[in-house]
Every structure is written in C-alpha cells, then in structure tokens.
Design a protein around this nucleic acid. Structure first.
Lengths: 325, 325
DNA sequence: TTGTATGCGTTATCAG
DNA sequence: CTGATAACGCATACAA
C-alpha cells in the first residue's frame, strides 16, 4: 500500500503538499496540483482512513447492534440504516447480539475501542445504567432509557389500538395478543397496553401471550400459538408482534382447519416484505422502517455536532389491511 | 476518552509499562501490574483500536458486500458471517451494493481506505478485471473469477439436478426454471445448466425464465411468473432460484386457482427460514449457509496468514422435501 | 505557494 | 524489571 510519502516522493514535493491537494486546503499552484494527482494515480494511492481517523478523532464509523439481522424486521432496518448512513459518509459495523446481555455489553465495548462516532442500539437486554459509561452519541430503537438518550420508535400505542380496533370492528369476540417478553421494558409493550385498554373498553374477551426472552425461533412461535388455541379453541382474533409471528399464526390456523379470516382474523406488525408476499396476505401495522433508520442516523449526527436533540422520536404507524382480516 | 498516557500518569509509570501489561509482554512486577490495572479501572480505560491498527498494520475489520441484506438469503448469510467473524476476533463492515456496479467499486475502494483485512464479495456486477487492483485477501461468493481468487459456493449443478429430477420424478411434464440473469456469470447459472441437461435427458419439455438484472423485488417475481403461466397454462413444475421466488410462485398459483402440488409442483432454493414458515411449506434445495459463511472467513484468515488456499470451495447441497412437491 | 516540525494513541526496539 | 524514543500515516500550525 503506497502512503502519502510515496506520492510526495514521486511528485517531487513534500507530504504537506500532497495532504493539501488531498484535502483541498490552502493555496496550491495548478502545476504541482497536477503533478500530485498524477503521482496518486500512478501509484493508485488511497489515503489511509485509520491514520486520518486517528488524527481527526473521528472515524466515520457507526455501530449497529441488533438481535439478529436474520430477522426480517432487523434485516430491512439494517439495509435502511446502512443505505442512509452511506449517503451521509458513514460506514456501519454490524453486531448481532442474539438478545444476549453479555454480548450487548461486549459489543458496546468493542465499538468504543474502535472509536465509532455513534451507536445505534436496537437490542435491549441490558439494564439502563449500563449506558451511563457509554460516553458517545447513541440512539436507541424502541426503548426509552431513563435519562436523555434519544430513541426512535413508531407509535406503538397507536399501532396496538389500530390493530385491536380492527379486530373488534370485524366482529372478533375473543382475541389474543402474542407479544414479546413484557419484562424487557421495550416501548413495544405499549402495543399490549393499547390492546388491553381497547379490548376492555369495548368489552371483548382478551388474552396476552408472551414469548420467552431471547426467542426468535419461528418454531417456538408455532408452539406458542398452538397452545393458545388448545386453551381457547374459540379464539377468533390474533394480534401478533411481528409479521413473522403472524405467518406462524396463519400456519397453525391452517393446520387446525380454521379459516382465515372467517374463523380467525390476524393482524401482524412491521409490514416487512413477507407480509405482502405470503397468502393470505397479512393485514399488518406498518412501521416506517426507512424513515426510522434515517432518523436514527440523523439523531446521531446531530449529537456529534453537539446539537440539542429531542429524546422522543415517534413516527406514525399505518394500518395495512389485507387478507387476514 | 482516557489514553494510555492518562493511565501511565495515574499509575505513576510510563506508557511503555502500561502497554506491557496491556499486552502481557515482557516481565512486569506484580506490584506495578496491579497499580496499572487499578488505574485502568479507575479511568475506565479502553485501548484505541485505531491507533493499534495503524501501528500493527492490521485492523481486524472485514468488509462484506452483498446486494442487500434485506433479502433473506443475504440476511441469514450476513448473520452467519458476522457471528463466525466475531468468534475469530473480526468485525464486519456492512455494504449493500443493490447490485449496482458503481456502488460495488465504490465500496471496495472505501474498504481499502479503511484498511480492512479482507473482503467478502457476495455481489457481482463488476467485471473480472476490476479485482486486479484489489491487493487484499478476498473471497467471492458464488462466482469464479478468472485468476486465483478463492470462492465459496454450494454445489449449484447438483442443486439444479436434484430439483429438476424431483420435479420429473413426481410426474411433471412441462417445467420451468425461474432464475436470475444468466449474463451475470454467476455459478448459480449452473443450476440452469443442470436443469436444461436433466430435462433434456429425461425428455421433458422445459423453459428458462430470467429476471432482469438488479431485481430483488417480489412484485417483479410475481409478474414474471404470471406471464409464464399466460404463455404456458399447462406448466406443471417450477424450479425457482430462491425461496422468495418460490413463495411468489405459490401466490400466483393460488390466484390462478392452481393446486399445489397437484396441478403445479414447486421447488425453491436456499432453505431460508421462510421456506418452512409458509404454507404450503416449500420444498427447496438447502444451501449450508452457516458453513458457507464460516468457510469464507476461514479462507480470508488463511490468506492473511499467507497460506495457500484452494480456489474452489464447493459445499454440498441437500434436497428438503416439503409440501410443494 | 511550499516546507518543517509536531502530535493523534499505540507498540516495539533498545538501553538502563 | 522499567523507561526513553521512534514509527505507523496523516493533517495542522507555523515558518519561510
């Protein structure tokens, strides 16, 4: 790998001059500028970003911690984040925590050591106070940390309300919400709050089913939903916390010979690609994934610039009515 | 951010000594070691990996270029790669090229500037010779580059053969292969070679349908398959190049009131999670994604160690018979 | 308009 | 067993 020194030698100038043309700083004669460019081309010179970052105290690296990018929601979110970050001149370091507390901490330490300029935390097992030591721009996904760490989420309460109301509007009498682990203190829990409040308000029988912690296995979802129907064979509405879960629900219903949407209506969450890909197409609550990713990056950049950023960044959700209701 | 200098001061030693305890090199008295550790704890010191990398000429960073991590195959592959890389002490920089030639080149340059220790290239629009300048350990996914760039793939020919034979064994008389763009010079094209050879050999009518270049849109798949049935209403077997496409095919069949597997049989490819999630569950050719990811990393590491590596790294595929056949 | 010297945070070499 | 110093590649302040 050629260095700035090699370029300088070849061009017959000093490294300072090369650095100047590289960064377009100060005055430089056209003649030397040309010489330098030629030398760079000839050597196929690429500035060493490690050295630059070290000097500038800025790496243009971002850390992204998700449970696993194998899950469609996080896959699409990661794609959105990387794409937008790239447009803003940032690179993203991918971290899959598997919703494992130790890994989350480990990754945070690692990212700090690598001098990332910011961290997007979309995996939340660790406790609030663990963040105290993170002396870095940080944005949280779907979790409000005590303190002023800004977070991005979509309107979970509204999402839960829309889904529940739709189910009831369509005539459901006995509904269930299959959600993540409520002990995890995620804003997604508001979906369940809305579910409970709405069902109660409208006088409909309701149940809440939680998955185990750390579970992203579709097989587990199926078992869960099977059990649900075992206990409540007359259940006629299911609201799930992801499209993946909704597809599992469809599958179980089909196995149990329950017709959708006649016998059971289902509402998913996220509106990932899979929702409109399968049959029946899944009615779901759409999270604006692209916008959420972009907003996370913007919030990080604003923090880097020492700007004041709002703590609550809640984007609207929309109901996508399709074939499961 | 505290530096090694701060630690040295606080511990009353020089940076050399701190560096020594940090790296466990040379002899150090227990007393000073303890002092240093205490100072590090007190300051919450984290070594700056940028500086370390610069000095060592090794970043422990890997670049991963995929078309888009939003596609299930690449999502699962990325998860596998990141997981294994992490276990080997490497971090991965995520790059989504959107199968865009310019972006691929741009990303490669960017990764080089950031001094990554190796690149995994799972997106291939660019021409063979573009790789000439990449003076770095590199591994290719599913593409054999003229020259000695090692690649990882699964046995595409065998996959195509297994799928086609299954279709014919089950009684299909008129089959189609919906594949990517054959002009892209991917090893995945061998699936089509096998398809054609097998169909011809066994005397079955066959068609090959290519997607446009750069297409990862499920809507496009549906249109394609719709057209296919328009032209050949009596088609009774479809082999697709991904599970996503297979699901699209299922959807189209359902819309056209064709029963699966009675009227039409479908075989997908990859065995991503979605294949066993939907109904009917998709019969598919399983690629060993985890192993492929791990192998790519291993090949990279071997190249870093200047070891001789095999160019052809082909892993076996297996047929997963499920409900679409 | 260009060059010299210094420092970013770290590690290795060589003395002591 | 520990310390001074140079070097990794680059960019800036200050001179010239």
């Amino acid at each position: 790998m050629p260095t700035i020194k090699d370029v300088a030698e070849k061009a017959g100038v000093t490294v300072t001059t090369v650095s100047r043309v590289l960064n377009n700083r100060g005055y430089i004669s056209e003649a030397t500028r040309k010489k330098v460019y030629q030398a760079m081309e000839g050597l196929n010179y690429q500035p060493n970003e490690l050295a630059r970052s070290l000097f500038r105290g800025k790496s243009h690296l971002l850390g992204l911690i998700t449970p696993t990018v194998a899950h469609p929601f996080f896959a699409e979110l990661s794609a959105a984040i990387e794409g937008y970050a790239h447009s803003k001149g940032y690179k993203v370091l991918l971290c899959n925590s598997q919703l494992n507390r130790e890994k989350e901490k480990e990754y945070i330490e690692m990212l700090k050591r690598h001098q990332v300029d910011g961290i997007i935390m979309a995996s939340h097992t660790i406790e609030v106070d663990e963040f105290a030591n993170v002396n870095l721009p940080i944005v949280t996904f779907d979790r409000r940390i005590k303190g002023e760490i800004p977070y991005v989420s979509s309107d979970n309460y509204q999402g839960g309300k829309l889904a529940t109301n739709l189910l009831i509007d369509k005539g459901c009498q006995k509904i269930a919400h299959v959600c993540g682990n409520l002990s995890l203190d995620l804003l997604a829990n508001k979906r369940n709050e809305a579910f409970v409040a709405t069902a109660r308000e409208r006088g409909v029988e309701y149940y809440t089913i939680q998955t185990e912690i750390n579970v992203f296995e579709t097989k587990q979802y199926e078992l869960l939903i099977r059990d649900l129907f075992n206990e409540h064979p007359d259940l006629d509405g299911i609201f799930t916390n992801s499209d993946l879960m909704a597809v599992s629900a469809i599958k179980v219903c089909s196995i149990l010979k329950k017709k959708i949407p006649d016998d059971v209506r289902i509402v998913g969450y996220d509106d990932t690609n899979i929702a409109s890909l399968v049959l029946p197409q899944v009615t779901t609550v759409r999270q604006p994934i692209e916008k959420m990713g972009a907003m996370a990056i913007d919030l990080l950049i604003q923090q880097m610039n020492k700007e004041q950023v709002p703590v609550d960044n809640i984007l609207p959700v929309t109901l996508q009515e399709r074939e499961t209701t």
